[in-house]
Design a protein around this nucleic acid. Structure first.
Lengths: 229, 229
DNA sequence: GAATGGATGTCATACACCTGTCATATAAAT
DNA sequence: ATTTATATGACAGGTGTATGACATCCATTC
């Protein structure tokens, strides 16, 4: 969940400023001072987003963007182009190199962060909406509801995620550690016993409809969501 | 099924760039460099959509748009206005002159294509009913009014748009970010928390009629407009 | 041109609800 | 009976929302 942003600008001062702002916003960042370094960095690891300066000595930002867009490997990396005022008049208007957004210097950190957020949001693939069903138990991701017949169940966020995971991965045992990884996400430092508690809470909610037995304990292994027995 | 787009801009380079992008996207395009040519082209054949530059020598884009909107023949042609950044004030006027959308230069072709698609879809769709209703709550898009029974509710512009969006997209959760995109529009960068405040204001207005509960909070996800409980 | 009023974005604070953890009870293996 | 693993209730801090207040920006009016 660590979002990695590559800053490409020939001026170290600007890179530093951007780096500071980005880290403040919780992103990790890498930097490149010219086209070559850029490709090296990208080859190193594909960043989640590139901030690309328009004017650079040698290969300009536009050229870099064009090249990135040509290669299948890098085509889908979101790019935000940084331009200076005055450059926007004639040249930029006519030239488009397929970048996702432009930000004009000088810009406020807030605006830049907002645009980064927006671009990242657009690039992530939308979850396919679905209604998952077991008997009369329905979990609808679109309306984010859980229903038994017409009756609405009140689940907390974690309970919802847990049930969603179970219902879409039935008939298979998961250890507490696996559940923590898959439902809570990697990089969580949580007691395994905590899983028990959430299982308990989920069962309690399902109990009035006898669906608590869908969640089965597999002693010394973990839990399983199963329609049988 | 050949969609015909008329590009109006005084700079040939820009027309060429746009033409290239449009043809790449499967549209056919024609061009006009000034107001006169525009009317000639339109008279020739009614285009499916017009891309109109804001700044042009002589008769400006706004004037062209106004004129097109006045004539019954051309009133329904969708128009997307191309503006330069910094013309913020003018943007609003542009919208007032009946333009369907505007795009700020410099823009990415991706964005432009997305907007063209959106505008075309809107204009083709069987017009959404002018009056949207939930129980005794009525929102009339034409008179721009919201009524409960015979009682008129006073909504600010944003509140109206928000309610309109909700009432036409019920039973589905939207994150704050999505609401910002869909109600406020892309390219608007404001705090997500601001959504809470507008939700609050809208609820406050609906509360006397108990309709505030139509707008439901989905913790850690967003909001949902729902008729159910 | 100053003044008034509405609309809107942002904050600070109050609040409600989650959540992770622990202690203890209970059940299952050995 | 003893050991081991899970179930359960309680609780304190943390997180996400609701809400009121405020500053700004515009448009309108005097």
């Amino acid at each position: 969940m660590n979002i990695d942003i590559l800053v490409v600008d020939d001026e170290p001062a600007i890179r530093q400023m951007l780096g500071f702002a980005l880290e403040g916003a919780g992103y990790t960042f890498r930097e490149a001072g010219n086209a070559e370094e850029t490709f090296v960095e990208i080859n190193n690891a594909t960043p989640d987003l590139i901030l690309l300066d328009w004017m650079m000595p040698g290969m300009s930002g536009v050229d870099v963007a064009r090249k990135l867009r040509r290669d299948t490997e890098t085509r889908q990396i979101p790019i935000i182009m940084l331009t200076a005022r005055g450059e926007e008049d004639d040249k930029i208007k006519g030239l488009d190199c397929g970048v996702d957004d432009y930000v004009t210097k000088p810009f406020s950190t807030r605006e830049l962060m907002a645009r980064i957020k927006a671009v990242l949001r657009r690039s992530e693939d939308p979850l396919e909406p679905a209604t998952l069903t077991v008997d009369t138990l329905r979990l609808d991701t679109e309306s984010h509801r859980v229903l038994v017949g017409e009756k609405n169940l009140e689940l907390s966020p974690t309970e919802f995620k847990l049930l969603q995971f179970f219902i879409s991965h039935p008939e298979r045992v998961y250890s507490r550690a696996q559940l923590l990884d898959l439902v809570w996400g990697d990089n969580v430092y949580i007691e395994e016993r905590t899983v028990d508690v959430h299982i308990r809470r989920l069962r309690k909610i399902l109990a009035p409809y006898d669906y608590d037995k869908l969640i089965q304990t597999v002693r010394s292994v973990g839990y399983r969501f199963s329609v049988h027995e």
